[in-house]
Simulated assay, not measured.
Amino acid sequence: MRLLILGGTEFVGRAVVESALGRGWEVTVFHRGRHEAPAGVTTLLGDRTAPDGLAALADGEWDVVVDTWSAAPSVVRDAARLLAGRVGRYVYVSSCSVYAWPPALGHDETSPVVEGSPDAGEVPYPQAKRGGELAALDAFGDERALLVRAGLIIGPWENIGRLPWWLRRIARGGAVLAPGPRDTPLQYIDVRDLAEWVVQAAERGLSGPYNVVSEPGHTTMGDLLEACGRATGSSAELRWTPPETILAAGIEPWTDLPIWIPRAEQPELHSAIHGVNVDKALAAGLSCRPVASTVTDTWGWLESLGGIPPQRGDRPVVGLAAELEAKVLGG
């Protein structure tokens, strides 16, 4: 198959490229030239946000386009309209953030979503992703648009910093503030499993919305952090600390302590991120590797970079300040 990916040089886009190349697909990567494209692809350069930025896409035909854009929906709209007559299927990598707040525990693809517009400029993330979905639907219709509502994404090439922060912190050793309870359930998707599902779903001609993340309780906070210890070979001591102690210290779940959300204290947020129904994607072939594989491979990738992960400029830096951690631990 012939794949056009809009982006394709970082995180999710790169994983999709690698998956498609592994299947022997012909891959064209359209990007701004800020990062080197993977080997084995055809490269087209352009900036989607600039006047005439899509000029390199004026010609050409592809079986499928994959778009991971997460800002102004009008950018998705312009690309989708330009390609509608020359591409078979539009795969838009959206987010479970499109569900109206607060989403119920076990929310699925039929749950209410936020309002959005394909013509919108810069809007909050949930509305941006919903607007991107509507842009794909407007140009390609219900039968040719696949909406991939991803959950928390981690794994090699991560440029948000969540799993890399935990790996680097535990590798540093010493007493580590481990947010309890240890058995807090986690739900996420390894970027490579997401990419594999996207590629095979496109190949099968699937359409419509799919929640794509592991089953709820795929792992726990304890299993994740202990896997970090094994992967790094660290002698760090995980000090499991009650959520009330952490919250009383002014520490923010998700940002200061990435991935973690206290289930009892913040049930709505925990349900939104770690309580998504994925029956539809599982029935359509979704398979998720064990947490140890994700953690070990991410650490190997980090080591190949000298331990310094990339960081998206449009996302905040995550992680707990060492001074605050030490204060809570009493040292």
Rank of each mutant, 00 (worst) to 15 (best):
R2Y: 04
L6F: 08
L6Y: 04
G7T: 10
A15Y: 08
V16R: 05
V16I: 10
R23N: 01
G24M: 00
F30S: 12
R32T: 11
G33C: 08
H35W: 11
H35K: 15
A39W: 03
A39Q: 14
G40V: 08
T42M: 07
T43P: 12
T43Y: 01
D47G: 01
R48P: 13
R48T: 11
A55N: 04
A58V: 04
D63C: 07
V64C: 12
V66F: 08
W69F: 15
S74A: 14
R77Y: 03
D78G: 03
R81P: 04
L83P: 13
A84R: 14
G88H: 06
Y90P: 09
S95T: 15
A104Y: 02
A104I: 05
L105A: 13
D108K: 07
S111L: 04
S111C: 02
S111W: 02
S111P: 08
V114K: 01
G121S: 10
V123T: 10
P124T: 10
Q127Y: 06
A128V: 12
R130P: 11
E133F: 08
L137D: 03
D138W: 13
A139I: 06
F140T: 08
D142M: 04
L146I: 06
L146Q: 07
L147N: 03
V148R: 00
P156V: 05
P156E: 05
G161H: 09
R162A: 04
L163S: 13
L163Y: 11
P164G: 07
A171Q: 09
G174R: 12
G174I: 11
A175F: 10
V176S: 11
L177Y: 07
L177V: 05
A178V: 09
R182D: 14
T184V: 05
L186H: 09
L186V: 11
Q187E: 11
Y188Q: 11
R192H: 06
D193H: 02
L194C: 03
L194H: 03
W197I: 06
V198D: 01
V199K: 06
A202W: 04
G205P: 06
Y210L: 01
V213C: 02
G217S: 12
H218C: 12
E226W: 03
A231L: 08
A231S: 14
T232Y: 13
E237V: 13
R239F: 00
R239S: 00
E244F: 11
I246P: 13
A249V: 02
G250A: 02
I251T: 00
I251K: 01
E252D: 12
L257H: 11
E265T: 06
E265A: 15
L269F: 11
H270G: 08
A284V: 08
L286G: 10
L286K: 08
S287Q: 15
T296V: 03
T298D: 09
W299A: 04
W299F: 12
W301T: 07
E303T: 13
E303R: 15
G307A: 07
G307H: 08
I308P: 00
P309W: 00
P310Y: 01
G313W: 09
P316G: 05
P316V: 03
P316I: 02
V318Y: 04
L320I: 04
L324Y: 00
A326L: 11
A326Q: 14
G330C: 02
G331M: 06
